[in-house]
Measured scan of single mutants.
Amino acid sequence: ATNIVGKVKWYNSTKNAGFIEQDNGGKDVFVHKSAVDAAGLHSLEEGQDVIFDLEEKQGKAYAVNLRIK
């Protein structure tokens, strides 16, 4: 899926990971530091509006192509 709108639920820069809550009510999506880095960002803030694509690896959904809304 592409161009999904959501809000950062939480992001821990020590653990280099967090979750994004989908505005469409879907399951929360894992976001890794690699996606944050690829977006040219240093970190994510709780409640921040984002747009992202979903990629599945080994049955788990990940946020990729992250951008700030």
Results as ranks from 00 to 15, higher is better:
Lys7Met: 05
Asp49Glu: 15
Thr14Val: 12
Phe30Gln: 05
Gln58Arg: 13
Asn16Lys: 15
Ser13Glu: 11
Ala35Ser: 09
Glu46Gln: 15
Ile51His: 03
Val50Pro: 00
Gly26Asp: 09
Ala35Gln: 09
Lys57Thr: 10
Asn24Asp: 09
Ser34Ile: 08
Asp53Lys: 02
Lys57Ser: 11
Asp28Leu: 14
Gln58Ile: 07
Ala17Ser: 14
Lys15Val: 11
Ser43Met: 11
Gly18Lys: 01
Lys7Cys: 08
Tyr62Gly: 04
His32Lys: 08
Glu55Thr: 09
Gly18Ser: 01
Val8Leu: 04
Val5Asp: 08
Gln58Lys: 12
Gln22Met: 13
His42Phe: 11
Lys27Cys: 10
His42Met: 12
Asp53Pro: 00
Val31Lys: 00
Tyr62Thr: 09
Asn3Val: 04
Gln22Ser: 09
Asn65Asp: 02
Ala17Asn: 09
Asn3Asp: 11
Phe30Ser: 04
Leu44Met: 05
Gln48Asn: 05
Gln58Asp: 15
Leu41Tyr: 09
Lys7Gln: 05
Gly26His: 09
Asp49Ser: 14
Ser13Asn: 11
Ile68Trp: 05
Tyr11Gly: 02
Phe19Glu: 07
Glu46Pro: 15
Asp28Pro: 10
Lys15Ser: 09
Ile68Asp: 05
Thr2Asp: 06
Ser43Asn: 12
Val5Gly: 11
Phe19Gly: 03
Glu56Cys: 14
Glu55His: 12
Val29Gln: 01
Ala39Arg: 02
Glu55Pro: 01
Ala17Pro: 01
Glu21Asp: 05
Ala17Asp: 04
Gln22Ala: 10
Ser34Ala: 10
Glu56Arg: 12
Arg67Ile: 07
Glu55Asp: 07
Glu46Tyr: 12
Lys15Arg: 12
Lys9Ser: 03
Ala39Tyr: 02
Gly40Pro: 02
Ala1Leu: 13
Ile68Gln: 05
Lys27Gly: 11
Gly59Asp: 08
Lys57Glu: 08
Gln48Cys: 08
Lys33Pro: 06
Lys9Asp: 01
Asp53Glu: 04
Phe52Tyr: 06
Gly59Ala: 04
Asp23Arg: 15
Ser13Val: 13
Tyr11Asn: 02
Ile4Trp: 06
Glu21Pro: 01
Ala63Lys: 01
Trp10Ser: 06
Asn65Glu: 03
Tyr11Val: 10
Asp28Trp: 13
Gly59Val: 01
His42Cys: 14
Glu55Ser: 09
Ile51Asn: 03
Arg67Gly: 03
His42Ile: 12
Lys33Asn: 05
Phe30Asp: 02
Ser43Val: 11
Val5Tyr: 12
Ser34Lys: 10
Asp23Trp: 12
Lys57Cys: 11
Asp37Tyr: 14
Glu56Lys: 11
Leu66Arg: 00
Gln22Glu: 04
His42Glu: 12
Lys33Gln: 11
Thr2Gly: 06
Leu44Thr: 00
Lys57Ala: 10
Ala63Pro: 03
Ser43Phe: 13
Gly25Glu: 06
Ala63His: 02
Asp49Leu: 15
Ala38Pro: 02
Ser13Tyr: 11
Asn12Asp: 13
Ala61Ser: 14
Val36Arg: 02
Arg67Tyr: 04
Lys15Asp: 07
Lys9Leu: 06
Phe19Met: 12
Leu54Thr: 05
Glu46Phe: 11
Ala35Phe: 04
Lys57Trp: 12
Ala17Trp: 15
Glu56Ile: 15
Trp10Ala: 04
Glu55Ala: 12
His32Tyr: 07
Lys7Glu: 01
Glu21Gly: 11
Gly26Gln: 10
Ala17Tyr: 15
Asp37Ser: 12
Ser34Val: 08
Gly40Tyr: 05
Ile51Leu: 10
Lys33Ser: 09
Gly6Lys: 01
Ala39Pro: 01
Arg67Leu: 05
Lys57Pro: 03
Phe19Thr: 06
Gly26Pro: 05
Glu55Gln: 11
Leu41Met: 09
Ile4Lys: 09
Val31Gln: 00
Asp49Cys: 15
Asp28Met: 12
Gln22Phe: 11
Asn12Ser: 14
Ala61Lys: 14
Asp37Met: 14
Phe52Glu: 00
Ala61Glu: 12
Leu54Lys: 06
Asn24His: 10
Asp37Leu: 15
Gly26Ala: 09
Lys60Ala: 07
Val64Ile: 11
Val36Lys: 02
Val8Gly: 01
Val31Glu: 00
Gln48Phe: 06
Asn24Gln: 09
Lys15Pro: 02
